[in-house]
Measured scan of single mutants.
Amino acid sequence: MDPFVVLVLCLSCLLLLSIWRQSSGRGKLPPGPTPLPVIGNILQIDIKDVSKSLTNLSKIYGPVFTLYFGLERMVVLHGYEVVKEALIDLGEEFSGRGHFPLAERANRGFGIVFSNGKRWKEIRRFSLMTLRNFGMGKRSIEDRVQEEARCLVEELRKTKASPCDPTFILGCAPCNVICSIIFQKRFDYKDQQFLNLMEKLNENIRIVSTPWIQICNNFPTIIDYFPGTHNKLLKNLAFMESDILEKVKEHQESMDINNPRDFIDCFLIKMEKEKQNQQSEFTIENLVITAADLLGAGTETTSTTLRYALLLLLKHPEVTAKVQEEIERVIGRNRSPCMQDRGHMPYTDAVVHEVQRYIDLIPTSLPHAVTCDVKFRNYLIPKGTTILTSLTSVLHDNKEFPNPEMFDPRHFLDEGGNFKKSNYFMPFSAGKRICVGEGLARMELFLFLTFILQNFNLKSLIDPKDLDTTPVVNGFASVPPFYQLCFIPV
């Protein structure tokens, strides 16, 4: 058959498939802009700032609406009420993970971030239990974070109060905490193996944040037939998995079943207990991918939040002064901060919360999916439909947070200066898919920041009023603009 005829037939089939998918069930789905064949609503979305586009569309179609990214149908949730109703009140029905062709290629359905069903539930339950087990290797997770915080302070001392970009050092600290939990080992910041790991993690975040990856996920045929950065992403992930597998083999040879040292040991012990169960989800494949998931999810998000926190503290020296006064009063100079201190430091706690609220790190979270046909607000959402959640619409709700575009710790303080919780605080998402490392991340943010401010004054290279804190939105995360500062020993 003539190649031209084959091409026309293929394009015609794709067009018909697109029209059929977009028209099927439209009477039951939430409203939304009319999609174009094949490309859907992509032309109506700013790929570099999806969150802003969703906010604009919500003003037209309401808090629940339908979009098509290519052939992929998505239902968008915008605003606290619908997000709570879906992710919390109907948590089980909305607990699936959205379709990610690239991740599915890399992870093969294993791990904790992109798995679904029984596998996801069992691996998540085990990971939560293990991360909360403060007795691994007779050292609590808090001990590990405190140790890394001391190392971080010593690295900052080496800058000798000269101007520096904190990106690298602030990236090393949370990565080392995860390494300590998974591998029972922290690395020197100049260790070549550690630097290679950091390089792969950072490069992957840069790649994932590009519009090209959005295109690959919406048109998965590209993955096999086109060159691009997605190939580098898959190569980096394969490198990390190979490295983790080597460490798993080392653990198998040296493990003491009665004295687990780290996450890998705990997983291997669980595998041993379930070795007679042919349906067990505790396999080497799941261990390797879960460890890679924890490394990827637990490094860049925390380091970016820390980097943004220091920029905001530079911009608002009056806030920094209040935090340091609270540190001096509650902790002093002669001991290290600990998590028990947080309950006695409402202002510092409010500042950490406000940093996370203000920066809105992951504006749309990772997409969910419905696990069955769901009736939601008089609409029928078919099983498997991807759910896109606007966390921006919750964290920047102007009824809950007056002047949401302003950095103001009073958003989390009552009139008496006591810490005030808010149900709208969802930087880790909400419901059954809430970030498994939430507790660890909150511990790291509090301890790293208090250790830094206990030991250093922060000095800006320019007038604080002239510092730009506008986030650089890159399609996946909101990151701070480049800046330098000086760490002046107190």
Rank of each mutant, 00 (worst) to 15 (best):
I434K: 08
D293N: 07
D224R: 14
R124E: 01
A86Q: 02
L90N: 13
K273M: 12
D408P: 00
L445D: 02
N231R: 14
V394D: 03
F65H: 04
N474S: 12
R433C: 04
S365Y: 05
P63D: 11
I257R: 11
R410C: 11
N286R: 04
D256Q: 09
C13K: 01
V75H: 00
L380D: 12
D414K: 06
Q276W: 13
C435H: 02
F126K: 00
V82N: 05
S303D: 04
H251P: 00
L54H: 03
N133E: 14
I387D: 00
F226W: 13
L7G: 11
D256S: 08
H411N: 06
R357M: 00
I181L: 13
D46G: 13
C435G: 01
Q214V: 11
T66K: 02
L312Y: 04
R119T: 13
P101M: 09
K121N: 12
I289K: 15
P363S: 03
G439R: 11
L11P: 00
V76E: 00
F401R: 02
H316W: 06
V75I: 07
L449W: 02
L90H: 13
T320M: 12
K459A: 10
L131N: 03
F183M: 09
L306C: 04
K247M: 09
Y80T: 04
F100L: 14
R26A: 13
I223G: 06
P367L: 05
H411T: 01
Q340M: 04
L311E: 02
F183P: 01
K200E: 07
R442A: 15
V208K: 15
K185I: 07
T304Q: 14
G91T: 07
T159I: 11
S254P: 02
N218R: 15
R307L: 09
V177Y: 02
N403V: 11
N202M: 14
R132L: 11
Y308I: 04
E241Q: 15
F110A: 10
V394Q: 03
D46N: 15
D89H: 07
F239G: 14
P227V: 08
N258H: 14
K84E: 07
A477P: 07
P402A: 14
F65C: 04
V394M: 07
K158G: 11
F134D: 14
P163Y: 12
S162T: 13
P367N: 06
F282E: 01
Q356G: 05
E325P: 01
I45Y: 08
L391E: 00
Q276V: 13
C10L: 13
I39E: 03
L170A: 07
V208R: 14
E246V: 13
D46E: 08
R442P: 06
F239D: 15
H99G: 09
N398D: 14
E272L: 12
K375H: 13
P337C: 05
R119L: 07
F425N: 05
C372G: 10
G79R: 01
V436M: 12
K459S: 08
K28M: 12
G96Q: 09
L391C: 03
E154M: 10
V5R: 06
A292L: 15
P33C: 00
D360S: 10
L458I: 15
T348L: 06
